[in-house]
Structure formats: C-alpha cells, structure tokens
C-alpha cells in the first residue's frame, strides 16, 4: 500500500499525519499507478475522498506557476511535477510562511494588497 506523510497545521496546532492511498487509483479516475501520479494529484485525492479539511493549492499543473511548491523529503519542489513515492514526507516550504497545512504565503503583490 502506498502512503504519504503530511505536516498539517491548523489553528496553530501541528502534526505529521500518515495517509494511505487506495490500491486501485483508477477507482478515483486516476490513470495508471500512484507512482505515475504527482504529489498534487495525491493531495487532491485526499481532500476529495479522505480529509475534506485538507488545504492545498494547485494551478497550472505543469511546473510553470510555482504555486504548489512544497518541501518533499527536505527539498523544495513543485508538487505538480514530482511523482509520488511511497512514504514521502510533504511539508510547507517554510514554517514561517505557513498559512494552513502545506499552503504558504507566496504572494508577489503583498505590498499592494488591501485586506
């Protein structure tokens, strides 16, 4: 069974949670194996089917916008272009930027924002 570990952060409390992925990804409309899917696909699956409160971000799905950047086994990568590996640890890129779960503040226009 493929599993991943996620550093979750909600309302100031933090934990590393283990999530098991089902043996047959096709049942969730995912082509092929989990190893052929991206970290983003796994996060999307988990929010849809396992933990509705999981926060993640995803936009371009092709490594261009960097919105989905996370720390994977210690290294910062775009989740959408990184294939899933059994047992991988997924964390926010920087604890100081963390907003919720793996979502961090990546705004490029922070100084031009209202609210």
């Amino acid at each position: 069974m493929t599993h991943i570990r996620l550093r979750l952060n909600r309302d100031g409390s933090e934990e590393i949670a283990r999530f098991d992925l089902p043996d047959d990804p096709a049942e969730s409309g995912i082509s092929g194996t989990w190893e052929g899917a991206s970290v983003s696909t796994a996060l999307q699956y988990l929010q849809r089917k396992v933990d509705p409160s999981l926060a993640y971000v995803l936009s371009c799905r092709r490594g261009l916008c960097d919105l989905c950047a996370v720390r994977i086994d210690g290294k910062v990568e775009t989740a959408c272009t990184t294939p899933l590996r059994d047992g991988m640890l997924i964390e926010p890129t920087r604890a100081s930027l963390q907003l919720r779960d793996t979502v961090v503040e990546l705004s490029l226009v922070r100084r031009h924002r209202v609210a």
Binding site: R62, C65, D66, L106
Partner: peptide, 17 residues
Amino acid sequence: VLVLNKGLVGRTGATIT
C-alpha cells in the same frame, strides 16, 4: 482600481501557461 483574483496574482490564470 482594485483587482480581485481567485488565487495569487502573477501565479494563477492561463496567461502563464
């Protein structure tokens, strides 16, 4: 002018892709 954007400005949307 105020711009409202569903995601982060400069990162989301189809222009990048």
